[in-house]
Write a protein that binds this DNA or RNA. Sequence first.
DNA 1: TGAAATGTTGGGGCG
DNA 2: ACGCCCCAACATTTC
Length: 471
Amino acid sequence: MFGSALCWIRRDLRLVDHRALAEATQAAERVAVVFVFDKVILDALQDRDDRRISFLFDSLSELDAELRRLGSALIVQHGDPVEEILRLAEELKVEAVFWNADAEPYALKRDAEVHRRLVQAGVAAKHYKDHVIFTAREVRNQSGGPFRVFTPYSKAWRARLTEPDVQDFSPNPERFWRDLPVTVQMPTLNDLGFERSDPWLEPGPRAAQERLNRFQDHIDGYGQNRDRVDLGRTSGLSVHLRHGTISIRACVRAAQAHATTGAEKWLSELIWRDFYHMILEEFPQVVERPFRSEYQQLKWPGKPAHFEAWCIGQTGYPIVDAGMRCLRATGWMHNRLRMITAMFLTKDLLIDYRLGEAHFARWLLDFDLASNNGGWQWSSSMGADAQPYFRIFNPVLQSAKTDPDGEFIRQWCPELAGFAGDQIHWPHGASLMEQQIAGCVLGADYPHPIVDHAVQRQLALALLERTDRNG
DNA sequence: TGAAATGTTGGGGCG
DNA sequence: ACGCCCCAACATTTC
């Protein structure tokens, strides 16, 4: 039993179903909760009004209010996490520091350093699995190695799943440190060097739980509706899973509560998340280069001007432009649109997937290295169990399937709103008179297509087939 | 978690 | 009535 301990939260911004907090409040009399804004990460962000900082800030404020209600408070620091945690451990004279493990390369290095220095200072370092259901080492193939294909991985994952894997880790609220012996003052956004922005999605663990509750009304139809970008029937929980304002175990428990194909399908998506975290942990080189080594020397011939057009949603392909504009405006994009836009960048514009990956990393509220990298490697056919290189989406057909009435396109490309029926998916077939009636003259109000899909498809096939054969 | 190209089949128009 | 052609509609193969 420890007298006092610190629980360092990072991407697990909640006080319920929290492994490290549950362990800490069981093992120590007094537990102080701390969050450190990493100065290096914050300073590297390109946008001073980055929505993620507002989301983080508001989520932390909610935790602080909750802790104050219990007589404690959230300690929020701004600086180098290694130094801040060490300094705080010393100042509060704690006997142990608890945290939930994070398998991203940067976090692994940081946490190893904190661990080393704590032990050196005579403080126990205790870390736990919380962010995923299974770590990379827990799901292995017959020869004891990591899976490289999703389906067998997911079978092994499901076969291994038992009740303790999804247990609800409840912290003991009696053990939160009352009357902290340090002055605790939350920095303002301004102190951090940021301005407030609309986080688009309700932040904080309370909103996350409400969202999960609401999603359960639609979970049975998830299999049917998930690819419809106009319906909004996905869980919308990616942002909360990324920041840990909801626990992955709570999500799996929700899926298990419904014996339907929809819930089953959603569980598969949650397994994809574990799969990509496993891939990142086992093959950290994917951060830099393609998982499939035969593509590592590939030179993508696309043009910078096309990349610009893609970023701002001016490609002349309505579904692509709508998706890209939605990303910039809200910080979120439907998963199906991520595939369509990623496929378009790589297979139609022949641009290096890493440029698209970086653009998503900048704008996505739910940006997660493992999932974002996995998704891009999948779409570009470079990854583990990726889409085969010859499976190329036709953006116009995808548009008709995922947004049949064109409602999503009309929302984000209002200049196209006047086109009726299927013309919304491909307005370039409209005569000049039809364009005038629709109030949108192509080439003036909306761009002509910057490339021809049929032509680019052939170029992509030739490029990737050659590489596939010759390495 | 495709789409295009190519192959096959069978109904109907026609001489 | 019959063979022939056309071409959807569907199936299979290929990228």
